[in-house]
Design a protein around this nucleic acid. Structure first.
Length: 426
RNA sequence: GUGGGAGUAGCUCAACUGGCAGAGCACCGGACUGUGGCUCCGGACGUUGCGGGUUCGAUUCCCGUCUCCCACCCCA
């Protein structure tokens, strides 16, 4: 048997109803904040990701699905392509390619699959879905303002509340502006030098490749060492510190709760200043339900104009997982099951079904070869609210037996009133 | 990529130290010819993840492999 490949899966009913519910709510919230949808390609030139996400990150160095495209001519070299491991790079690429700065501030969102070749776990798949958004534009359009950071965070709080996600926690940090980041990195490296030898091998490796990530180290024995390391918050220059301060003030003003977490660092190279994560308890080790931050230099590093931005990505798989705990089923049940009864009644049933569906009634259609008992059985099994019996008597009198399957009450309804009768009983 | 656990009917799970693969739920049919849910009776259902080995005999023991789960790594 051919099976879905490792780390991929089929989303089936009724779960797909939950996904649709989530996406509908998300689109609704984005609309209120004046965000608009973009759809970028599912694969891009490999270079886009190595330049934006960072050559040294795990994502780029070992988790990408990369292949060489077929060349059409001798002279043409196959281009290296990659399934997108995240979507910010693609959106920024599109921003530059289509000169979207001409519109001032852009508030864009996307919903779609991403791909990373990691070992699968609950809430972590090789094809996974992200709902994300980016606020990006020239500084003159206000894209750098702390008001944008706060607005994005407040949007997220609204969204999670709206979805009925309980017990989320917002962790907030500033990873600094480019210039103080460099100074800080140096200080951190210096502080690590004398102690790094005592640390866990894995943490040592981080100390060398990406010192900032030492803070993510979870080995208990190393915690006292990590606690003594200098913090980025002590190295923020004045504008950067103020920026972070104002983000917090606005959040307080609008009543969004958060906790400062000066050990929160983000894995992708392009992040600057505000970094954040929303976590949820019910997800095991994959407790981050979404993450994001500011990426002020990303546009330039991809050859574009200055275009500070802030964005986030929600793990849709994880969101749905968290929702299963606290949301009831949202799948719409059929309004009526039509039970044709006897030879020739399929035709009549089809006509009635067509009429009612035009009136937005959800109809499931039976089969004239079924005995009435079986039809009613099926009707209640699939959760239909009504059963409509279409037999000779009904056709003759142009009035149909409509049975309420919850109460058992049955009435005869003239053809013209059927749809209305069913709709009005919600 | 590393370490550990688990794969048996559509689902949840049994099957003692190796001895005829089972139950509940779900599904299908009947009791009941145009009236569901309850009840009763019957039915179908399996390459025991896959491949090899040991054995008279393997769901059971051994090796390999695949997938899922847990943790790490990393991240959404």
């Amino acid at each position: 048997m051919i099976k879905a490949v490792r780390g991929t899966r089929d989303l089936l009913p009724p779960e797909t109803a939950l996904w649709n519910f989530v996406e509908a709510a998300v689109r609704d919230v984005f609309r209120a904040y004046n965000f608009h949808e973009v759809r970028t390609p599912i694969f891009e030139s490999t270079e886009l990701f190595s330049r934006s996400v960072g050559e040294e990150t795990d994502i780029v160095s070992k988790e990408m699905y990369t292949w060489e495209d077929r060349s059409r001519a001798e002279s043409e070299r196959g281009q290296s392509l990659t399934l997108r491991p995240e979507n910010t790079a693609g959106v920024v690429r599109a921003y530059i390619e289509h000169k979207l700065w001409d519109r001032g501030l852009n508030k864009l969102y996307y919903i779609g699959p991403q791909f990373r070749r990691e070992r699968p776990q609950k809430g972590r798949y090789r094809q996974f879905y992200q709902i994300g958004a980016e606020v990006i534009g020239p500084p003159s359009a206000g894209s750098e303002s702390p008001a944008r950071d706060a607005e994005v965070l407040e949007l997220l709080a609204t969204l999670l509340d709206r979805l009925g996600i309980k017990n989320w926690n917002l962790e907030l940090n500033s990873v600094g502006c480019p210039n103080d980041r460099a100074v800080y990195n140096e200080a951190l490296r210096k502080a690590l030098e004398p102690v790094v030898g005592q640390m866990d091998a894995d943490c040592q490796r981080r100390a060398v490749t990406n010192p900032l990530r030492v803070f993510d180290c979870k080995v208990p024995a190393d915690q006292p060492i990590i606690d003594k390391l200098p913090r980025i918050s002590e190295y923020l220059d004045e504008p950067c510190r103020q920026h972070f301060q104002q983000v917090q003030e606005i959040l307080n003003a609008v009543g969004v709760r958060f906790s400062l977490s000066d050990r929160l660092v983000r894995g992708l190279d392009y992040y600057t200043r505000t970094a954040f994560e929303f976590t949820h308890g019910a997800l095991g080790a994959q407790n981050a339900i979404l993450g994001g931050g500011r990426y002020d230099g990303l546009s330039e590093s991809l050859g574009g104009p200055p275009a500070p931005g802030i964005g986030f990505a929600i793990g849709e798989d994880r969101l749905v997982l968290a929702l299963k705990e606290s949301a009831e089923a949202v799948q719409r049940k059929p309004d009526v099951y039509i039970a044709p009864l006897g030879a020739g009644m399929d035709r009549e049933a089809a006509r009635l079904a067509r009429e009612m569906r035009r009136h937005d009634v959800v109809v499931e259609l039976g089969d004239e070869s079924f005995r009435l008992k079986k039809s009613l059985e099926t009707a209640s099994k699939i959760g239909a609210r009504f059963a409509l019996i279409v037999g000779e008597n009904e056709v003759k009198s142009a009035s149909f037996a409509l049975k309420n399957l919850e109460t058992g009450e049955q009435v005869s309804v003239p053809r013209a009133e059927l749809a209305q009768k069913i709709q009005s009983s919600h």
